[in-house]
Amino acid sequence: MAQIIVVTSGKGGVGKTTSSAAIATGLALQGHKTVVIDFDIGLRNLDLIMGCERRVVYDFVNVINGEANLNQALIKDKRCEKLFVLPASQTRDKDALTKEGVGRVLDDLAKEFDYILCDSPAGIEQGAMMALYFADIAIVTTNPEVSSVRDSDRILGMLQSKSRRAEQNLEPIKEYLLLTRYSPTRVKSGEMLSVEDVSEILAIPLLGVIPESQSVLKASNSGVPVIIDQESDAGLAYSDTVARLLGEDLPVRFITEEKKGFLQRIFGS
């Protein structure tokens, strides 16, 4: 059975697309046939981060409207043969995403794929609601700050009341917390909430903590999901996250301040 995973947040710019690209790539690298869908109609950028923007011909809305079939619209990743991208349309308006249309496309994809990742747009409007409606698993992407935590709480309420599983009284969506752009230094100085604070407030299991890292920007500028960069802390943290999603029990890394280097120790910080 295909698992439908929504990467959602409420708040914008917290790292949903970065995380969708990284986790989809990680799942595919582990041998699972995976497709990642951009639900951010009109503001597409998943294809940029995946490095396939030049190969977009047809998009998700074309498929919903019957203007193209899935095979025409799916873009095969150039690094990993088990990975596919279903890009969003740059031009159409987001009301193109109807429940029936999205449901039909997901049903078709479920016949072929192990994992279907839905990269949600920010907010709680049509696009975001459609991205979460059919989910089996939700990765609630949150930055360690008050407004992001509050929006995540709001999204958790939506998952519990406005999703297919809620409406049909099925087993609820499995909700996981992914804490992104985590900066131990800023947590220590009190500028940011800690892992414990956020976990306590949202009260859902922690799937991973991704540190704030230069490597993320570098990766997205070159169109390579950051998980490919196994030299970087963010890449390693995403690998851990994928492993946990697949059932492994791993300790959380990169949540304490890095030990100061030799020169810093001598000269202070």
Binding site: R150, D151, D153, R154, L156, G157, M158, Q160, S161, A203
Partner: peptide
Amino acid sequence: KQNIRSGQ
């Protein structure tokens, strides 16, 4: 028997 989330 559940958390009441923001907006609920």
